[in-house]
Design a protein around this nucleic acid. Structure first.
Length: 110
DNA sequence: CAGGTGACTCTAC
DNA sequence: GGTAGAGCCACCT
């Protein structure tokens, strides 16, 4: 059990996302040491139970909300992002490119 | 063990 | 920028 569960690593990666910032599933997965497991991240979030987990900061590679429009989580995510200063337009997030550029500035070039 | 599903990603048209 | 097809991994029936 010496290894930390991938689940916890993913949660930690999401937790390390600064407020007002957003990240992609693939990005989070890679940061958690699980390249290509973006689907796993999605599953974790769908099963997660932690209300203080900034899951709303996790978006798709297209910078879009990762759920059906009109869904309850969809509205919640959109509202929370706006509350943090993130610009959301038509289910899409603006400034995603800036995030990609700052991704190394946030987590470090390693 | 096989088949189906999902808060995904990539490439091609 | 949108749509379509294939690839991917973990979980459920």
């Amino acid at each position: 059990m010496a290894d930390v569960s991938a689940n916890d690593r993913i949660l930690a990666a999401i937790r390390s996302i600064p407020r007002g910032q957003v990240a992609g599933y693939g990005h989070v997965a890679q940061r958690a040491g699980l390249p290509g497991r973006a689907r796993l991240v999605a599953r974790i979030l769908s099963q997660n139970d932690d209300p203080r987990l900034p899951w709303h900061r996790v978006l798709r590679s297209d910078g879009r909300i990762a759920m059906p429009e009109g869904s309850r989580g969809y509205r919640e995510q959109c509202q929370r992002l706006r509350a943090e200063g993130v610009v959301v337009e038509n289910g899409r997030v603006r400034g995603l490119a800036a995030v990609k550029t700052l991704d190394e500035a946030i987590w470090g070039p390693s």
